[in-house]
C-alpha cells in the first residue's frame, strides 16, 4: 500500500467534523441532531486512527474503539431521551425545549 498523506487524512476528519457541526446548528429534528453528533464522533475517531497510522502503532485504533463504545452508549441513552422528549412535548422539535429561557 502506497502511503496516504497524514495531512490529508486529518483534513478529511476536519471536514467531516465541520459538516456534522453545521448540521447540529441548523437542523431542528432531534433524531437528526443525534445523527450529527455521531458524525462528529466518527470524524474524531478518524483523526485518531490517522494519527495512529502515522506512527504505525495500534494506539490510534484502540482510541477509536473506545470512542465507538462511548458513541454506542450515548446513542442508547440519547434515543431513550428522545422517546421521552416526544412524549412530553408532542413532537421532536429541538426548539420546543426552551424552558431554560431567560
Amino acid at each position: 500500500m502506497a502511503a496516504v498523506s497524514l495531512d490529508h487524512g486529518l483534513i478529511l476528519a476536519a471536514i467531516l467534523f465541520v459538516i456534522g457541526f453545521v448540521g447540529l446548528l441548523t437542523r431542528r429534528n432531534l433524531i437528526v441532531v443525534l445523527a450529527c453528533i455521531e458524525i462528529m464522533l466518527n470524524a474524531a475517531g478518524l483523526a485518531f486512527v490517522v494519527a495512529g497510522a502515522r506512527w504505525g502503532r495500534p494506539d490510534g485504533q484502540v482510541m477509536f474503539l473506545f470512542v465507538l463504545a462511548m458513541a454506542a452508549a450515548e446513542v442508547a441513552v440519547g434515543l431513550a431521551l428522545a422517546i421521552r422528549f416526544q412524549q412530553s412535548l408532542g413532537r421532536l422539535d429541538v426548539d420546543d425545549a426552551d424552558e431554560m429561557k431567560g
Binding site: 457541526f21 447540529l24 446548528l25 441548523t26 431542528r28 441532531v33 429541538v94 426548539d95 425545549a97 426552551d98 424552558e99 431554560m100 429561557k101 431567560g102
Partner: peptide, 16 residues
Amino acid sequence: SASQNGLLRVYIGVAG
C-alpha cells in the same frame, strides 16, 4: 437576556 433564549442550537452555536 435575549441570548438566553433556551434554544439548544443557539447555545451550541455560541460554544462553536
